[in-house]
Structure formats: C-alpha cells, structure tokens
Write a protein that binds this DNA or RNA. Sequence first.
DNA 1: CCGAATTGTCAAGTGAAAAGTGACAGTTTA
DNA 2: TAAACTGTCACTTTTCACTTGACAATTCGG
Lengths: 105, 105
Amino acid sequence: MVEIAQRPVRAPTHPGAVLREDVLPALGLSVTAIARHLGVTRQQLHRVLSEQSGISPEMALRLGKLCGNGEMLWMRMQEAHDLWHARRKLGAELDRIPTLRADAA
Amino acid sequence: MVEIAQRPVRAPTHPGAVLREDVLPALGLSVTAIARHLGVTRQQLHRVLSEQSGISPEMALRLGKLCGNGEMLWMRMQEAHDLWHARRKLGAELDRIPTLRADAA
DNA sequence: CCGAATTGTCAAGTGAAAAGTGACAGTTTA
DNA sequence: TAAACTGTCACTTTTCACTTGACAATTCGG
C-alpha cells in the first residue's frame, strides 16, 4: 500500500517549470515567438518561465488555447501551487479552526 | 439530449452567495461568530458574503476546515468564477491565438 | 427605560502580485 | 561592421485580498 501524502513535503512543480522544460522545447520556438502567439509581452512570459509569476486565469486560457489541451491543466497546476503555499503560511492556525455541523432546522 | 454549455451565458454563482444563502443559515450563527471561528475579521467575511471579495486559497482552506468538506469545493467555485470573467475579458483575442502542434524532435 | 455591548456595513489605507514599459548586454544576421 | 533580435533586469501601474477605523442600528443587562 503506497501512501499518497495529502500534504506533500515539497512544493508542487511550478507551472512555469513545465512550460520551460517540456512545452517550449517541444514547440521549438523562441520565447519571443511564443509570447507573440500568446498575445503577451515576452517579458511577462519570461517571468512565468523563471517562476517569478504564477499562471493567472487569463494566462491559463491563453496557454490552453496555444497547447490545445484546454485551460484546466494550467489552472490545476497553479491551484496545487497556491494551496501548498497557503497551507504552509496558515500553519497551525488551520488546526484551531473547528469543524461545525449544520443543525437540522 | 441536453446541451451542456461550455461557455455559459451567465456568470457562475459567486462562492459568497452559496456561503450567504446556504451555509451560514444552516449553521445558525452570526457573521461575527463565524468570522471568529475562521480566524478572519468580520469585515473580511462580510466582503466575501457581499461578493466584493473572492475566495483566496487561504480562505478556501479556512472554509474547508470549518465546513468539513475540504477546500476543493471552494476552490472550484472560485475557479469557475475567475475563468468566466477572464474569458469574457479576453473576448475575441482568444480566437486569435493559434493551437500549435509539437513537432516530434 | 436606559446605557452598554454587539452587529452589519462603509471607507480609507497597506501589501502582494500580475502586467506594461523602458533599458541594456550579448548574439545573430545581412 | 552595423542593424535587428533575444534574454533579462528594473521601474511603474493596476488590481485585489486584507486590515483598521468609524458609525448607525439592534440587542441585551441592570
């Protein structure tokens, strides 16, 4: 039985890393060319690739169209990333929040 | 055969509306009391309920713990909301983005 | 009945993050 | 060799969640 950690120790892969290491090489185009296709500045794409920017919903739509796989892939990756950092930031405070039951009215 | 619209005409329900109309009444507590449990100010909770704020990843974690249903429910609702508005904002620009095929290197 | 506490709501200010713009060094190309 | 292109950095703007302070209306204890 393999344990699937609900709270992984290390941060989930940044979407920018996938873009940089898998998608762009397969397309074989320069950052500038991809940015032109996406309709964003090459500077903004560069920030995503260098993991200085996350994937906004707008960017997810653009990438989803460009790659043909839809926006959900990018939304999911960013979501995993955001949740991991939010949970890390909240820390023990989450444990102090009770789970309330709805009383049948 | 019922048509499921991929791009619904009207905006998806705001998570704050669900919280306001379904969750809070079932719990039978005041906004202030809920906010205290969540560990946020009553002003911030009010902004969510009045749909002036969205659900941040942090807030999703708090609500997930409080309701006992996990954070994904709230993340999904906010995601649907964000994507709908992003697509509306992008408009025809999305159509101008080509779908590129990866050339087998 | 009245004063105090609580509650809902509004407005201004803070901080973080995405995105635009300008600049610059290194490389490619004609 | 000069011009165009590319990657990268720094500055600015904008948006949004969140904090804080304030205030009117309501609830509650003496």
